[in-house]
Nucleic acid binder design. Structure first.
Lengths: 242, 242
DNA sequence: GTGGGAACTATACGGCGTGAAGTTTTCCCA
DNA sequence: TGGGAAAACTTCACGCCGTATAGTTCCCAC
């Protein structure tokens, strides 16, 4: 009832204010794009002075970094949830469910998508470590699960077709931090499978980013049909029955 | 000798100054990213006042629009040149040459790539018409040429595999302005072929944009190998001999 | 109840896009 | 050849931004 007794009123307030700052920033982003994330605007919204925020984030970029981490984590959560929800389905359906969740999230949160994958805000450069790379790896592991499912569920020849272009890959081609998560989870997945995962990532990301940034809409009025065709072709090339 | 007599000294100077503004802006972009494109910085570099630029571009966004058009045109030129240079090669090699030209241009001009395909500059929103959409369509037509080559050079079954996922597309699914250029140039290409072109665009764009924005490098140390594998798989799935 | 530290404000600096007004330069025509 | 219009450019101003510094207020532990 008393909550964690180790945290006094002081730190609780601090945590709440920190959360409010991030929440306000996300609201501003949703209504005005990532560019609207402004210390002064946040402070205005919260009835504070811009400088007060410096008590919670050393710099504007630190705040943006925290937002990226939060949003990226939300995306990873959504993808994991979609994956888990389709646990009973056939491999092809699972992959399609995951991909639709990806596109759906991006279209529902275009500003968040730009924040994560685009140039978030004027001079922002992402720092080295932190929570955002973790979320990125979670997404990659999720795609590796797709690849593993394909490897598993495909006829031998089918998997060969999907992997055929992956010859020549070795574990040394990939980030150790990624492999630390991928290899234990999917022991049967060879290096070529990880390469396949990254290529699938590229396929889906490409179509979605073109759509979110409006480049696709200029050429076609049916991006959803295009995406569906892409998925059909993807599962087919992986040798999966749909 | 006298040049075009219809243009007096006045307009010639005007054109030169306009070019110098754009050139200076591109230099700033190359050295400091798209964010460095600043009226004041350009003016400083040129020994002028920031407001003087308003005599040439009504607004900063207008300048950015002009830059986007120029850079996009340069990209389209590079791609067309690569395509023309491989005219004697087999379809698979031509497609690979085009794709490598695309990735190569992006890696050589990452700032330009971000300018075209990302969030160029704080609050910038692309206008409706103009030269940039033209260049975009040129690129799309180039990819349609890829698809047409595949349609042409592939065995019937192979083309069927590539197009299999394209069933259900009609001409009404695509931008009339795009079709105006594509259909006369490639009369044999069905709607599914245009869909295939857009999907190929998505594939390549996805991998390249992930690489340019650093998301791929975090997961693999061999993005070039990945891209090559992608192309091998692409030509294979199109039923082309490499 | 008092000292210390955390939270916050006030003020300031330089940089940004942009508008209004004023000044200089250039060109064209009477 | 001179005068007036137009173009090119500068100056000043406004409100926005991130951020540094210094000062103020208030809560909590001793």
């Amino acid at each position: 009832m008393a909550g964690t007794p180790s945290t006094g009123r002081r730190e609780r307030l601090r945590i709440e204010t920190t959360a409010e700052i991030k929440c306000t920033a996300l609201e501003l982003m949703r209504s005005g794009g990532p560019d609207a994330i402004t210390l002064r605007a946040i402070a205005r919204e919260m009835g504070m002075t811009a400088n007060a925020i410096y008590g919670y984030f050393a710099t504007r970029d630190d705040l943006v970094t925290a937002l990226v981490a939060d949003v990226y984590t939300a995306l990873a959560d959504a993808l994991d949830a979609a994956w888990a929800a389709s646990a009973q389905d056939a491999p092809a359906r699972r992959i399609q469910a995951w991909a639709h969740a990806f596109r759906g999230w991006a279209l529902a949160n275009p500003e968040g998508f730009r924040l994560i994958y685009g140039d978030p805000v004027p001079g922002y450069r992402a720092p080295e470590g932190g929570a955002a790379p973790d979320a990125a790896r979670r997404v990659c592991v999720g795609i590796a699960a797709l690849a593993d499912t394909a490897w598993d569920g495909a006829a031998g020849a089918g998997a060969g077709a999907g992997a055929g272009a992956g010859d020549g890959f070795g574990w040394e081609d990939f980030d150790p931090g990624l492999l630390d998560k991928v290899r234990p989870a999917f022991p049967a997945l060879p290096p070529a499978g990880v390469a396949l995962a990254l290529r699938i990532w590229g396929h889906l990301h490409g179509l979605v980013v073109l759509e979110v940034y409006g480049h696709l809409r200029a050429q076609t009025s049916a991006p959803d049909k295009l995406f569906r065709a892409e998925l059909t072709q993807l599962t087919r090339s992986l040798g999966l029955q749909d």
